[in-house]
Each structure stands twice: as C-alpha cells, then as structure tokens.
Simulated assay, not measured.
Amino acid sequence: MNTHVHQPSIKQLTWRRSSYSSEEGGECVEVAATPARVHVRDSKDTTRAPLVVDSTTWTEFVNFAAL
C-alpha cells in the first residue's frame, strides 16, 4: 500500500493574504494550506523559502493568537 501523499510544489500552491492587508503593501504574510501542511511566506519577498508547519501546529497557533 502506498501511503505517500502528494505535496504540491511552491508554484502550485494557492496563496492567500489577510483581508486586513492593503494593496499598498506593508508588513504582511501569505499562507497556502494543503491537507497536511501550511506554508507561510513574506508577501514582500515571495522568492524566499516559506516556513512550513503541519496543519495541527498551525491550528494551535491560530487558536493561541486569537486569545
């Protein structure tokens, strides 16, 4: 049985920016979620490698940040 889960390349990811971000730039991050991972990158420098965390860790972070 093959348990390998296909992970899309960085170019295949759909990146989202916060609705609080303006079109004028500023300090912002973008996220792209897959079932197993969440990729986080600097919107001002999208050529740098993103931070990648598992989905559970991302959920814990978001819940903590919402407190």
Rank of each mutant, 00 (worst) to 15 (best):
F61I: 15
T57L: 11
S22L: 01
F61K: 12
V29G: 04
E23H: 07
V38T: 06
A36E: 15
A49S: 13
T56V: 13
L67W: 10
V31D: 06
E60L: 14
R48Q: 14
A66F: 10
E23N: 07
R48H: 12
R37P: 02
H39M: 01
H6L: 14
C28N: 01
A32S: 00
R17L: 05
L51E: 08
R41Q: 01
T59F: 08
I10K: 04
A49C: 09
A33E: 09
A65F: 02
K44C: 04
R16G: 04
A49L: 11
D42E: 05
P8L: 06
T56W: 13
E24I: 11
V40M: 07
S18M: 02
V31T: 08
T34Y: 05
S19D: 00
V5G: 08
P35G: 13
S43E: 10
K44L: 00
F64N: 14
S19F: 00
T14L: 11
S9R: 13
N2R: 12
A49I: 10
G25W: 02
R17P: 00
P8G: 04
S43D: 10
V53E: 03
T59M: 08
S43M: 08
G25P: 07
V31S: 02
C28H: 01
V62M: 12
E24K: 10
T59R: 13
R16Q: 09
V29Y: 04
T47H: 08
P50Y: 01
T14Y: 10
D54K: 06
P35N: 15
K44A: 02
E27C: 04
K11N: 12
E27Y: 08
S9W: 11
T34H: 07
G26Q: 08
Q12T: 13
D42N: 05
W15Q: 04
V38S: 04
S22I: 02
L13T: 04
H4M: 11
A65S: 07
M1P: 11
S19R: 03
C28L: 01
S21E: 03
V29N: 05
S55T: 05
F64T: 14
A49Y: 09
T34I: 06
E24V: 10
L13Y: 02
V62T: 15
H4N: 12
H6G: 11
